[in-house]
Simulated scan of single mutants.
Amino acid sequence: MRELFLTAAVKDSDFAMACAVLQGLTWMNARHTVHRILFFHGQPQPQPLKVTRAFQQSRFLQLWKDLSSQLNRSSYVIQLAYELVPDRDFGKETNMEFNALPGTLRWTDLPDPLRDTPVTQRKKIEIPEQNGLPTALTDNGFQYKNEIIQESYSFVRENVEFVFSRYYHLPESQGRPLAALPPWADLRPVDPAQKWVLNVKLNVIDDSQPEKVKKANGELLVVKAELEKIFNFKAIDRRVFDTRIAPPPVIPGRG
């Protein structure tokens, strides 16, 4: 799958107005979601996935095979996303058993170089509704790195998705996710200015056909022109989205 998207920043003071604009554009109320994102980093040297139960018994077996192929050429940071309910999951002394919960594995590649367009393009693999994801990753040499909370408001018009996202810090935990989450009201945004990021997205499932990717790029540019008096969509340095793990430096031998 290839993901194409536009990016704009929205001030917190302008957020309600921005949501109202997209509500009118899409004729729908926003879908509000909160996810707990766990980050796992791979080994310095790339290698394919070993067969695990999560891999072999999944109805998304082909996606696991595609992911294995990508990991065989480069090592990456992978996200595991678990949807939460603020009133239920925050400020309670309950430990989430991630292996027993359905989560979504997210992998994204380094975006393509920009070519006179604000549209970012990158390969993406998402494997939804999977149990046992942390075990599947640790069995393949991945290590837990850290975690974060993602809050999103999304709108959809035909095949175009409009998503406002903001991220929140969690207290540090030694080598594993927190046993219990703090109250929702105590969370503080990662961005001190508390801005929201708006992404206007299109997914091309069959990215082996360049004309389909070109068509999607054109559709996003039409949306940009439609909204350019309201949102300032900018070209983003692709290094911002780099999830690759750099290999250890090569130390030349003597003589």
Rank of each mutant, 00 (worst) to 15 (best):
Y168P: 02
F155N: 01
R122T: 09
T104W: 00
P102Y: 09
W64M: 05
L84Q: 06
E151G: 03
Q174D: 14
E161F: 00
S75G: 07
F98Q: 06
T117L: 06
T135M: 00
Q150V: 09
V160K: 02
Q62N: 12
Y167Q: 14
E93S: 10
S165A: 15
E93V: 06
N99R: 00
T94A: 12
G91Y: 01
I78T: 03
D139E: 15
L137W: 05
E158T: 07
L170T: 00
Q143A: 14
Y153W: 15
S154M: 04
P171M: 06
Q70K: 13
Q143W: 03
P177A: 03
E147H: 08
G132E: 01
G175M: 05
R115D: 00
P118E: 08
V163S: 14
E83S: 11
R122L: 12
N72W: 00
F90N: 04
R188S: 13
F142A: 04
T108C: 14
S68I: 07
A136N: 02
L181P: 02
E126A: 14
D116T: 08
R73I: 08
P128E: 13
L170K: 03
D87S: 11
N99A: 04
Y76G: 01
S69M: 11
A180V: 06
M96T: 11
S165R: 12
E158A: 10
V160F: 04
Y76P: 02
S68M: 09
F142N: 04
R157Y: 13
P128G: 10
R88F: 00
T104I: 09
Y153L: 11
D112T: 10
D89K: 00
N131A: 03
T94H: 12
N146T: 10
P183R: 10
P118Y: 00
E161C: 08
G91F: 02
A136I: 01
A136Y: 01
T108M: 12
Q174L: 10
G132N: 04
G103M: 02
A180S: 14
P128K: 11
W64T: 04
Y144W: 10
P177I: 01
I78V: 14
E172L: 13
A185H: 14
R176H: 14
D87W: 09
P189V: 05
D87G: 09
I149G: 04
M96V: 13
